[in-house]
Amino acid sequence: MELTINNAPVYVATGGKDFNPKLPTVLFLHGSGGDHRTWALQTRWFAYHGYSVLAPDLPGHSLSGGEAFTSIEQSGPWLSDFMEAVGVKSAHVVGHSQGFLSALELARTAPEKLMSITAIGTAAAIPVNQALIDTAKANSDKAAQMMCNWGFGPDAHLGNSSVPGMQPIAISRAIMSRNPLAADLQACADYKGGADVVASLSVPAHCILASADKMTPVKAGMALAESLGVTPTIIKGYGHMLPLEAPKQTLTALRAFIEMVQTKRAAA
């Protein structure tokens, strides 16, 4: 699906089905340098099981036009406008890494637009090594390589893939190296407001964390879970790129949480 926000084209993956705003909607937000393909093995399940799916390429990323955000705070109003443009009043919002920070800013901007929030491989703040940011500014391919080396866990580095014949690390590197990684990383490094938004959240929340996460260590994720008052799902043996390297486990945890929220909403 394609639409225009702020005079720039926006590409939105809908999980292989036409978008229907009447169905409960799950909004997936990718992380630094990523795009909708982060969620290839989660979105289609939701789209084929009673949900509508929105997985946009954020501005300046992959198939979307425009300029990348220079601050996380810019993403809140943009996401609010985006939801209005597609006719969605509220959604289950799922964010991976930086995508969760964007979800927090949506919550700050328009809290009524969240039915639930899920944090995947992330924390309330994502400090970024200045050397990585500087590398991304000078050479995005090299920075993508550094990100993938740290970001993926040992199983992915052994070349295991849930999709036969594919190499998730090489795929991520190819996507990241063409996207505005430096702007994303700088925005993450500069973002300080996450803890305040987390404290103000009133919607159901969940955390799906990776035990071998070197980008947002599980300790930081555990602190986020504690702030949210939730028991996190910790997927053992995998790294920061959970939706890509452990797609089935990520989907299972995500399904369980969103279905539980839906059940409670139906009962209420």
Binding site: W45, S161, S162, G165, A170
Partner: peptide, 30 residues
């Protein structure tokens, strides 16, 4: 919705190991 094998004309676990190994050796995505 998920990856996996259905029929060995399309994909097979032993063949997939070879595919993933050759993709990695060549520096390809798949």
């Amino acid at each position: 919705e998920q990856g996996g094998h259905i029929y060995s004309r399309i994909s097979n676990p032993t063949v997939a190991v070879l595919e993933q190994r050759l993709a990695a050796l060549e520096g390809g995505t798949g």
